[in-house]
Design a protein around this nucleic acid. Structure first.
Length: 1147
RNA sequence: GGGCCUAUAGCUCAGUCGGUUAGAGCGCUUCCCUGAUAAGGAAGAGGUCCCGCGUUCGAGUCGCGGUAGGCCCA
């Protein structure tokens, strides 16, 4: 059909693939080669399937299909295993939702076993739907031989990786500051903070400005909205690049008044930019004693706000318990209570000096860690102060604010024991309204709190990661040294433990008695079995590393010499691994390395190709690279596409609630998968840009690419099938003769084949460079050429049953569908099957195009065939004969046609009006000769009786008048002439130049040397009389003879009549093959013309009878040339022979 | 606040090593053509190449500083 239902075609193709097992065979057809030498290794980035796929998944899925399909056709063996990401917090939250519970205590109450069972069910809930979507998008991927991160084999490889890191000293335990819900007694991930818009709510907190007394006497002003963190204070941070001032408060200011008469008022230090904000306390005319840089303050020491950790000995003793509980080795804190540098310090609010409580702030932790200050955790899991802060022990931190503020102001409580001149002062106490994070479950205000965590010591091999990144080919290129490279260079240690339930367990067992410490790390089921007597087993008795089964493995501490009944026990730490550790382990864990497939893995790592959206530079791309570097000292992948973000039709992020994007199912049902694939693949999104998805955009690709391709095929099939009186014609592949020539084919045929050759060559180049959008652009241009140049100009040959035309079009379409197959796999499949009668385009080979070299080589080295790898490029596409000269000549033809049309247009002569002649004047005889074969094409396109070729060497120059124009090659002349080149260019443009007798060209007074200029000959004017002259863009010119005689006018008139009748036919809703009875009424002065072309008119309009009358001119309708009346011919005439009918009319 | 990216015609985007007069597709206007095509052809309108400074004989392109937007981080 001419207007096909593409989705229907697609469904039929999909069904045939399933029936024919085509995917599996396309993989199996290709030899993997020795040690996988002929494999293309693709890693599937596991999606988290806890929901349905959206455009982002579809986009990535299409790329994940295009590249392997292409490589398969190139002859590679490409395994494609689907991966499922199954662990992690999203799964747990979904399980909580299903189970109707909201916090960890409820999980503990119901039991981890039941909870994890719910998690497992939730992550596999949508696998069927995913499979359906992936199948519908024509993505070939192996669902049977898939991998899941919850598989015991996968998990065993993951704990192996952890142990490797531990053994290399690259895994350690430390602190990590997280949002923490003291009511639910659980840390939250940063992701949970962004989960709901109303997680951040306005809240009123006390804000204190406190002065801490430097040993030199001045007070550092710090500002905090969490007074409860002051007892845990460890340092003050300043921005080293900010200016600070030492200020003496004005006489009579509140601060000056606070000291007894006679005593000097205290001097305070704050950022210069914040001085005005404290005018109330310091007085309007407070005196700036000194201005200093932040860096000058770094290292200064002061008296802490509270005395809890001031006494080194007491601190060490009291903190020991907390440290022991966390398993951290004791170390002192010599740097505490000093000024440290922090780039994050701003002067937007506060004082420009920031109070650091490293256990309760991320910045605090990082800045203190940099100078060796360890956090002091003074708050228990319920948010209450511990014995480390005896004065407030047991008080919830928010409740403690009031008491802390009161003690600070009054010097009471713990400060009573501190000498007055070492106490802090409270400069300001205000109420602060700010946006503050709340627990998304219980709506209580969160705190930030240090929790114990395991880390990968990324900082230790960070530089190596940067080096290895240089070996990766990124698309777009800037990712390598930009977003990804910069991220690597600034990488911090990776926190990999999560205080959760559903994940790969951290395989660390510790003694439960600090008196007899011991740590065991396990990297395999076998090691576990050795120490615990058996592997962990679930309720079905199957090996299962998940909690709670793995936690049930305990044993007496071998390092504990006490009798058995008193011995300490080795227990697993409760944490599970960050899910990103799972996905980073995917290359080896999917094959259960090193327990199985060690040899395979060696030869398939790094992988050849991965693709994800740009955000994965901090996600999958990153974790793959971290583990690859740490474990194997090589990159995990050779090339990566990092695509942009898919936006909704309004340019904003796609949002379910806004409904700002086309429904996926609707698009697939109406326009089809290939339309969506092409739309996405041809878009800038694969070059890193963002993409707005609109239905119009998708439809535009259907109209611009898919339908023209289909119609080219439909045109071919329609006429090939009706050839030889309906017997049909089976087209042959064009094949060159022994000399490699396409003798017997027209220029246009050879041109199409040469262009198809170029297409294959250029698309190969683009696809090899992962420039998928570029490949699509090339194909789009080629389809335009095929349909709107070749087919349109050659239609008559098809109606004339010229078999070379059929063979040529068949060959071109067959190659085109192969080239396009990865980018529109369903539609090309249907067309290719129609063309060849064979099974699948995806089981064939990519058109390879190095025939010239291969021919020479294979001729001289006959044995080269056998000694070369399977798919080296031999004479596989003999029909696609490159011909650069022919391609260039045809470009000239299109120039000539276009220019001649422009002349007609300027002279207001319609194309239907035949003209006598066109002269094409080219530079020399050779060019004219090369053009000669195309003269008929020009004649028919421009509607000319004759196309003459002339060259400038003939008398054409004299007859039409020519000028010579000077063009300067700035690239060549610029370096030699320097500044003068501008002068020369201007002179050349203005005609201010001359050529000497000896040939020297001088422009603007400057002599030019060979190669710096070009002399171009052009027609001078627009021609004389009825000759119209126009310059060709590539040099040369055309001269169109606009003179009309009666004969030409008559012919033009006849064609006008035909046109009008065709319109009337269309208006009468006639079928294109319907015969008609026609009556024409023409004006007297057109009678002769109509008579002369009566047969032509009848033939063109399929008129079996034509009655011709003369009517008064006024009866002819406006816009028409005749009065037209027509009716469908009677049935017997309709079935009669058209030519006989025409003959009757002629008589 | 930091890092990265982007900014070129009404829209979506190309623009190579810095080289003379900056392109394509779509859209728009007018005209033409039309027995495969939901098409095709021609002409036209439409540009402060985000702004500024600099380097250079010459800058859409290179450098610096801004502005706006996107992504990520904080």
């Amino acid at each position: 059909m001419a207007s096909p239902s593409i989705p229907a075609i697609e469904r039929a193709v999909l069904a045939s693939w399933e029936a024919g097992d085509t995917f599996r065979r396309s993989v199996a057809n290709r030899d993997a080669g020795e040690n996988g030498s002929n494999e293309f290794v693709f890693y599937d980035g596991p999606p988290f399937a806890n929901g349905l796929p959206h455009y982002g998944h579809l986009l990535t899925g299409y790329v994940k299909d295009v590249v392997p399909r292409y490589q398969t056709m190139r002859g590679k063996h490409v395994e494609r295993r689907f991966g499922w990401d199954t662990h992690g917090l999203p799964a747990e939250l979904e399980a909580e939702r299903i189970l109707g519970i909201t916090d960890k205590s409820q999980i503990e109450a119901m039991g981890i076993e039941a909870f994890n069972a719910a998690c497992r069910e939730s992550v596999l809930r949508y696998t069927k739907e995913w499979q359906d979507y992936v199948t519908r998008q024509a993505r070939w991927v192996d669902f049977e031989n898939d991998y899941k991160t919850l598989d015991p084999t996968f998990m065993e490889s993951v704990i192996w990786a952890f142990k490797q890191l531990y053994d290399k000293g690259l895994a350690y335990e430390g602190f990590r500051v997280l949002p923490y819900c003291w009511r639910d007694e659980t840390p939250l991930s940063n992701h949970e903070l962004r989960m709901d818009d109303d997680v951040y709510q306005m809240r009123q907190d006390p804000a204190l400005t406190v002065g801490l007394r430097l040993l030199s006497g001045e007070y550092l002003l710090i500002w905090t909205t969490t007074p409860w963190t002051l007892p845990s204070h460890q340092a003050v941070a300043v921005n080293p690049d900010v200016a600070y001032v030492v200020v003496e408060p004005a006489q009579g200011s509140p601060l000056a008044a606070s000291v007894p008469d006679g005593e000097a008022p205290p001097r305070v230090i704050l950022a210069e930019a914040r001085l005005a904000a404290y005018a109330r306390e310091l007085g309007e005319d407070a005196r700036v004693v000194e201005t200093i840089q932040g860096s000058d303050l770094v290292g200064a020491h002061y008296h802490p706000p509270f005395p809890f950790f001031a006494d080194e000995a007491a601190y060490a003793e009291r903190d020991q318990a907390a440290r022991d509980a966390l398993g951290v080795a004791p170390e002192d804190n010599p740097h505490a209570f000093g000024v440290i540098a922090g780039d994050f310090v701003t002067t937007e609010d506060g004082t420009g000096l920031v109070h650091m409580a490293p256990a309760f702030g991320e910045d605090d932790m990082a800045a203190c860690d940099a100078v060796g200050i360890t956090p002091v955790v003074t708050v228990d899991s319920g948010g209450r102060f511990t014995a480390l802060v005896p004065d407030y022990e047991g008080v919830q931190v928010f409740d403690a604010n009031a008491a802390i503020i009161a003690d600070l102001k009054a010097g009471s409580g713990p400060l009573a024991a501190v000498p007055a001149d070492a106490r802090p002062i409270v400069l300001r106490h205000e109420t602060y309204d700010h946006s503050y994070p709340h627990c998304w479950r219980c709506r209580n205000p969160l705190i930030y709190k240090a929790v114990s965590s395991w880390f990968v010591r990324v900082t230790q091999f960070r530089d190596r990661m940067v080096e290895l990144n240089q070996e990766i080919a990124w698309t777009p290129e800037h990712i390598r040294d930009g977003q990804f490279g910069k991220w690597l260079a600034g990488a911090r240690d990776w926190s990999i433990s999560r205080n959760r339930y559903w994940g790969t367990p951290i395989p660390v067992w510790v003694s439960d008695d600090p008196a007899y410490p011991r740590i065991d790390v396990y990297g395999s089921l076998e090691e576990l079995a050795r120490d615990f007597g058996d592997v962990p087993r679930n309720d079905l008795g199957q090996p299962d590393l998940h909690r709670p089964w793995v936690d049930q493995l305990t044993r007496p501490n071998p390092d504990d010499p006490r009798p058995d009944d008193q011995r300490s026990t080795m227990r697993r730490i409760p944490d599970v691994l960050d899910v990103w550790f799972d996905s980073g382990s995917m290359p080896f864990a999917q094959v259960h390395y090193p327990f199985e497939n060690a040899d395979w893995f060696e030869h398939h790592y790094p992988g050849d190709f991965i693709v994800e959206y740009i955000g994965q530079t901090r996600g999958w791309f990153y974790t793959l690279h971290v583990l690859a570097t740490a474990l194997f000292d090589r990159p995990a992948f050779r090339s990566a596409i990092s695509h942009g973000i898919v936006l909704g039709s309004d340019g904003r992020k796609m949002s379910k609630s806004l409904r700002n994007y086309p429904d996926v199912t609707e698009v697939l049902d109406r326009d089809g998968s290939d339309a969506m694939r092409w739309f996405l693949m041809a878009s800038p999104i694969l070059r890193g840009g963002n993409l707005v998805v609109t239905e119009e955009g998708i439809r535009a690709e259907v109209r611009g690419v898919l339908l023209p391709l289909w119609n080219a095929w439909y045109f071919f099939a329609l006429y090939a099938n009706t050839m030889h009186d309906g017997e049909g014609y089976r087209a042959q592949r064009v094949s060159p003769d022994a000399d490699g020539r396409l003798a017997g084919y027209t220029e246009m045929d050879r041109y199409l084949l040469a262009r198809t050759h170029d297409l294959a060559r250029d698309v190969t180049r683009a696809a090899d460079a992962y420039d998928i959008a570029g490949a699509c652009q090339l194909i789009r241009e080629h389809i335009d050429l095929l349909t709107n140049w070749y087919v349109r100009t050659q239609r008559q040959r098809f109606w004339d049953e010229d078999t070379t035309a059929y063979d040529t079009l068949w060959t071109a379409l067959e190659a085109l569908t192969r080239i396009m197959a990865p980018f529109a796999p369903l539609l090309t499949e249907e067309i290719w099957r129609g063309l060849t009668g064979e099974e699948s385009v995806h089981l064939t080979d990519w058109p390879v195009t190095v025939r010239t070299e291969a021919r020479a080589e294979s001729a001289s080295h006959e044995d080269a065939f056998t000694s070369r790898p399977a798919r080296t490029l031999y004479d596989v596409e003999p029909a696609l004969v490159p011909d650069p000269d022919l391609v260039a000549a045809m470009d000239r033809v299109r120039e000539v046609v276009s220019t001649a049309h422009a002349l007609r247009k300027a002279a207001k002569v319609r194309v239907r009006q035949p003209l006598r002649s066109l002269a094409v004047v080219l530079a020399d005889e050779a060019e004219a000769a090369a053009f000669e074969p195309f003269a008929p094409i020009v004649a028919s396109e421009v509607n000319l009786k004759e196309v003459r070729l002339e060259d400038l060497g003939s008398d054409a120059a004299a007859r039409y008048g020519v000028v010579t124009r000077l063009t300067v090659n700035a690239r060549a002349a610029g370096p030699r002439l320097g500044k003068q080149v501008q002068q020369v260019i201007r002179a050349a443009r203005e005609g201010d130049w001359a050529q000497d007798a000896d040939g020297t060209v001088t422009a603007g007074g400057v002599a030019l040397v060979e190669g710096e200029y070009e002399l171009v000959t052009q027609a001078a004017g627009t021609g004389e009389g009825e000759l119209a002259v126009a310059v060709l863009p590539g040099g040369g010119f055309v001269v169109l003879d606009l003179a009309l005689d009666a004969e030409l006018r008559a012919e033009g008139y006849a064609r006008d009549v035909v046109r009008q009748v065709q319109d009337a036919r269309k208006a009468a809703d006639l079928h294109v093959t319907d015969r008609i009875v026609l009556r024409l009424g023409v004006a007297e002065h057109h009678r002769a013309a109509a008579q002369a072309h009566r047969a032509f008119i009848a033939k063109e309009t399929l008129a079996v009878a034509l009655e011709l009358d003369v009517v008064p001119e006024v009866d002819v309708p406006k816009g028409g040339v005749a009065v037209v009346e027509l009716a469908r011919a009677e049935a017997d005439a309709e079935t009669g022979d058209a030519e006989r009918a025409t003959a009757e009319v002629t008589e």
